[in-house]
Write a protein that binds this DNA or RNA. Structure first.
Lengths: 192, 192
DNA sequence: AGGGACATGTAATTAGTTACATGATTGT
DNA sequence: ACAATCATGTAACTAATTACATGTCCCT
């Protein structure tokens, strides 16, 4: 989903400013599977307005910068519907954490442990956030998405917690048997 | 992780051509959390060679195009180690599927059902692939990553399978109570 | 005969991020 | 006094994808 469609989606729930859209993406349900920065949201909103898919009403505020509240037009609603009906592309996951984990045997075990504990902490935090989600989920889709996220995060946390110790032990054993991690790694050839 | 680091990682396991790196990313363990196209791999390899982090040996082949087999240098190995020690950035997930799910109430229920079934099929397929993984995992990190992936995919599949029916029923109820999905959606105003 | 796997590479394009520019108000 | 929040917007830059260009062999 490009930023424009993302904006249409957020605006389908409630009228909002560019700033609020970004906040919603950063903190709300969407934060788990979509993202967009200010630098892409404002131009997207401008383009959507030019296409007639949204209309922006300028609201002067005292003591605060003016805000431009956008709301979906009929055409915008139809555009969202059309985007929703197109077969969704495959999920794109980009995880530096996982990449690093694959090379765990090249890391000092303490460092590996720290990474795993940090991951567990992150997961616990986000499970808690999803669990007592601030917004009241009325639409069934939001209930589904929240449950999905919780199921995934809980499975991850369970796995990290149960696999952590044996994993680190195996890495230590691997390091003891082969080249030691980091220190000396410079000297050790490994081409098979 | 940028494409260069990704290449370093793949080459740390075994020497390979650009083509093989791409294949490995597309089909192997990495496919679940990293990606790169030919158009970015070849330039990355060239740049890495210029920096002395890899060396490419040209192998003339009869009946096939020449292949340039790259292998890591000591400097390349150190560069990978350095990249591995940097704190990993947060995971980036981009899921069109999830986005569509949030707006399930705007979809015809049959369409929603098809999407959920397709998701379940995809998950089953990838669980099977991970489960009897073609490559023998020697390094503990690969064992961990495979287990992680399996745990996540299984949790997703379980959730989709158990939530599917009630979800669709709730969407139907929602549609019956409010505006009907798709047909007539054009005429229905929804701004709160 | 045609498509797919093997194999490398470049150029054009897209889509996004980061950083900058501006500025008041509120909380610490 | 300083940082954070609210609020919008542009310009420069980065990083990647897609499409193109080329060519053989093998299988159906």
């Amino acid at each position: 989903m490009d930023v424009k469609t993302l904006c249409l989606g957020v605006l389908a729930m409630r009228p909002a400013t560019g700033y609020e859209i970004r906040k919603g993406l950063e903190e709300g349900l969407f934060s788990h599977f979509q993202d967009a920065a200010f630098g892409s949201i404002y131009p997207a909103l401008k383009a959507l307005a030019a296409e007639g898919l949204v209309v922006g009403a300028e609201e002067a505020q005292e003591a605060r910068p003016d805000r431009r509240v956008y709301r979906l037009t009929e055409a915008g609603r139809n555009a969202l519907l059309a985007a929703l009906l197109k077969p969704p592309g495959p999920d794109k996951v980009r995880s530096d954490f996982m990449f690093v984990m694959v090379f765990a045997h090249l890391l000092p075990p303490e460092r590996l442990d720290a990474l795993l504990q940090e991951r567990a902490r992150w997961l616990r935090e986000h499970i808690a956030l999803l669990d007592c989600g601030g917004d009241q989920p009325i639409e069934p889709g939001r209930v589904f998405a929240r449950g999905y996220g919780l199921a995934v995060y809980r499975a991850e946390l369970e796995y990290v917690e149960s696999a952590r110790r044996p994993f680190i032990d195996r890495v230590r054993a691997h390091a003891a048997a082969g080249e030691p991690a980091m220190v000396g790694a410079v000297a050790g050839r490994t081409d098979p």
